[in-house]
Amino acid sequence: MEHRTKENIETTRIQADQVCVDYNGTVALYDASLKLQSSCICGLVGMNGAGKTTLFKALMGFVRPSRGRILINGSSVSNAQKDQSVAYVPQNEGVDCSFPVSVWDVVMMGRYGSMNFLRVPRESDKKAVIDSLERVELSHLKHSPIGELSGGQRKRAFLARAIAQRASVLLLDEPFTGVDIRTEKLMAELFLQLKQDGRSILISTHDLSHVRDFCDVVVLINKTVLAYGNTSEVFTTENLSMTFGGMTPEPMSGAISFNE
């Protein structure tokens, strides 16, 4: 176990080389290259339609790049899928909140990929779910239907699902929208813990203040990777202006102001 943790810490989690994705001829992403080490939190910043979702889809193997290649933990995306290496945490709007499942059921879904064909939970699966619920502080609500949770609690439930999956790469879609300050703090602490475990977290967001607060590296994206590197180096007015198409957000506050 000790050895495995060490190995985890040393690997390159995501390596994308010159990735192009197009949908029926419309280019969504071109020449996107990035390298994400283990134990790091990376902000993925761009406007709507800049290709954030497309990049996520490519990393999850939902779309096949027309050019370039993606390696996750050194192996292909489809292998990474089989190994349960990539977990996706959806935006709240992406799920049907009136679906008749409890918090426990949702987190257990993170274990499905490692279970047998009939998805019968073993003791280890139950333990993983209990642990994950504790980490997001939702143990007391495990029997609640997800429809009864607040926005922030729901977000934590889906985060717990990704933790239960034991994925080494976590893709988070706008994790801070509609989340109160307490949940935000809890999530930030959780991200740091996950990082210390050797996992890598890719956070898609257009809220720059969060990126500044706890992302080690940042990827600025507008159909391609415009800039990539340590947050303090990449977050320049010039880069941000490029990302947001002439509008310059204040790197400190995240507020957007017009350049001219």
Binding site: M60, Q81, A87, G94, M109, Y112, G113
Partner: peptide, 22 residues
């Protein structure tokens, strides 16, 4: 019966189902 859980997951969150290789 065999695909009970998988179908439930598919109805609930097809994205997650795909991302874990289903």
């Amino acid at each position: 019966t065999i695909f009970r859980r998988d179908l439930m997951l598919y109805c609930f969150d097809a994205t997650h189902a795909r991302s874990i290789g289903i």
